[in-house]
Design a protein around this nucleic acid. Sequence first.
RNA 1: UUUCCUGUAGUGUAAUGGUAGCAUGUUUGAAUUUGGAUCAAACGGUAGGAGUUCAAGUCUUCUCAGGAAAACCA
Length: 552
Amino acid sequence: MSEKRESLNFLEQIIEEDLKNGKYTSIQTRFPPEPNGYLHIGHTKAIWVNFTIAQKYGGKTNLRFDDTNPSTEETIFVENIQKDIKWLGYEWDNLFFASDYFEQLYNFAEQLIIKGFAYVDDLTSEEIAELKGTPTSPGKNSPYRERTVDENLAIFRDMRAGKYKDGEKVLRAKIDMGHTNMLMRDPLLYRIKHQHHHKTGDTWCIYPMYDFAHGQSDSIEEITHSMCSLEFIHHRPLYNWFIEKLGIYPSKQREFARMNVSYMITSKRKLKKLVENGIVTGWDDPRMPTVAGMRRRGYPASGIRLFCEKTGIAKRNNLQEIALLEACIKEELNKTCHRMMVVNDPVKLTIKNYPEQTHETLSAINNPENESDGERELIFSKHLYIERADFMEDAPKKFFRLSPGRNVRLKNAYIIHCESFVKNDEGQIEEIICSYYPDSKSGSDTSGVKAKGTLHWVSQEHAIPCTIREYDRLFKTEAPGTTEGVDFLDEVNEKSLVINKKAYMEPALHTYPKGETVQFMRIGYFRIDEDSTNDEFIFNRTVLLRDSWKKG
RNA sequence: UUUCCUGUAGUGUAAUGGUAGCAUGUUUGAAUUUGGAUCAAACGGUAGGAGUUCAAGUCUUCUCAGGAAAACCA
């Protein structure tokens, strides 16, 4: 009888309030990456927040590259970031660059000078830091703070004209050197950098700092809700100060907690070190938390989106469990992946009452979750491979698989009975001898025989060898890089990649294209890697069906 | 020692001042042509004190705990 109120996160509550009281009539958001690296799992949350909230309220989202530091930014990152955002399933309404606004920002700076809110400082960076004070003690005014408007204007124009060297002068806001918020202690607005910019070339030799570019860029684009991570909360008073002093469009900054994921790192510096030290093969190594890495691992974009949705938005520092990420990935993969049979660690199995020279074709449903995916053919014969782990000489009661005297169903085929086994000189099982019940065929079983478990298998003669890259989490510790005195490189899981070259796959897999993800029945999800050739089929392990970390 | 932010099951995230819910996790069970998925059940929570109130996870205040803030980075 009573309608269930939809629960809103705090950002949605703010937006609904703003819309209701007419503060804004529509909303506009933005995703503002700096083009100096690759997007990672942390960015996906920011992307998700900005795009889905705008979508929900019929608003728009811009992609804006925050390219105010020519020393670190490159075109290659601009391209990759766009590719990743599209892959994640989002489309921006406008593509902008902070550098599009350089002229406008310069004019803003002159306006501030004219109004007496900015001045040129000749101090060195060390001297500026010295006078800045500390969080607990106030700073002191620069001796250059009281220059006249005309003098400031003249020098600032000379700065733009290239009359000074890097570091010789800076433009600062004139706020309050005694402010409790250190960002309000006359922050730097412009610095001199005689450096080529990826977009503006050599047009400029002065570049605005983040604080003087970000809020004004938001304002120029009439961003209503500028949503960023908690670390920028101290910047908000400054963000508002510029907008107020310049009398421009009143964008509002709102902060939410960034998403951290257990066993992952997102520090750009540390990720770079992994690549440089050869611990991973590159930025798109399937173990990397980058969008490129997750894509190659086989994580579907829909699963990543689902993860962002399920983890929610709040203002508390959080560490999301990787198990939840993997649950989301599996939930999506389960809907779409074909169920295939691949034996990872083969042991021979011979069916003694099955004719030697013949084989038969059986049919298998590609995906029971999606009937329209149809069926495919399997080849069954006397000589098979099954998983070594699916046989136990002395099995406990709870072991549902093969053991002497026990029955088991071979998936899509027959129920077999284990008669005996053969060991080699080292005491290792070499061959398992079984008999089969001819009238127990899947789909037309009239045998009445019971089998507790079901095993996957391949035919020795028909199976195709393949390589499996068994990826695991990159780190051994839940929050790598956060323990004092411990180098994060020492926390790397040395078994994060095991290459398995002894596996056999069912023949039908041969026709599946690179980039396709399938389920290896009873094992997990695997993606056909781009490194595959006609001679070698290579799979990347995306995620296991069951979490093996807690057991054993 | 200053300022700001945040404290709800193991981990996350909800709850016009009025039934602490959901997901994940763990365990067990049912069913099953995957020890998956599905279904069912169990486990497990408001940091502490004081105040306001008929009623506080929610409002006020104090304590405690965690995080953040010093770059010519964003």
